[in-house]
Design a binder for these strands. Structure first.
Lengths: 119, 119
DNA sequence: ACCGTACTACGATGCCTATCGTACGAGTCG
DNA sequence: CGACTCGTACGATAGGCATCGTAGTACGGT
């Protein structure tokens, strides 16, 4: 079929009210995870885990995605063998209006300032 | 004298350009440190370390203030026996416009949502 | 000089975490 | 079914860190 149904195995996510600012900040304080979130934000759509080419092993990548999910920053859904990742912009904007934009803007400014050419 | 001069012992601070977003986020991801920063922001002026009544020992308090200083969030100056702490709003706003306000607003919203009455 | 206050330095401890490797499960396609 | 891909689970490891207690330093006032 053309639209692969969401697999039965679903992942635990915190409800919007359970998202804690400290957890979000801790999740984003890791360079690898900040990079993931930045890429998700610029692309603006769900991306599979394997889309990211991080300088760590798959195990570590899995770990970082789990931290992002458990802190409420991203939402993960299985779609076939792929695991799609999307930013929880609606929930984050609902809880902390303007925070996500400010964080992404700050990350972008720092990347530009540090002479980063690509992402 | 009425205005106690700044002591000769000065503390190492990162220059504005050395402040890293990840470091700032990590510093603010600790409840105790977020609490300190919130109080500094609401008061709007320098406060001594001893002004804060944190549920940890003095050793731990010193540790938290050092993390905040070394990450570039606060500036610390000795004034007599007291060590005054002030937010580096100018540097942070210069590097990441809107970020500090968004963070403080987010922290305030969460505090209000979680039924915090005091600070 | 002495004392009290404010903060630090150092060592210890227990927990958390970023990382890896290997072995495994779930799904798709031939 | 079998092979392959994607991602997970588990154990190990090394480093970081929040916390404490104790002992010590710097400064101001008496």
């Amino acid at each position: 079929m053309t639209s692969p149904a969401v697999s039965s195995r679903d992942l635990p996510h915190p409800a919007r009210e359970e998202i804690r600012l400290e957890g979000v900040l801790h999740a984003l304080s890791d360079p690898m995870r900040l990079r993931i979130v930045r890429e998700l934000a610029t692309v603006g759509q769900e991306l599979s885990c394997s889309h990211f080419d991080l300088p760590v092993t798959k195990s570590t990548t899995t770990h970082h995605f789990r931290v992002l999910r458990e802190s409420g920053v991203i939402r993960q859904i299985y779609r076939g063998t792929a695991k799609m990742n999307g930013l929880r912009t609606d929930d984050l904007d609902g809880l902390f209006p303007g925070l996500l934009d400010a964080l992404l803007d700050a990350a972008g400014r720092q990347a530009a300032r540090l002479g980063e050419s690509g992402l």
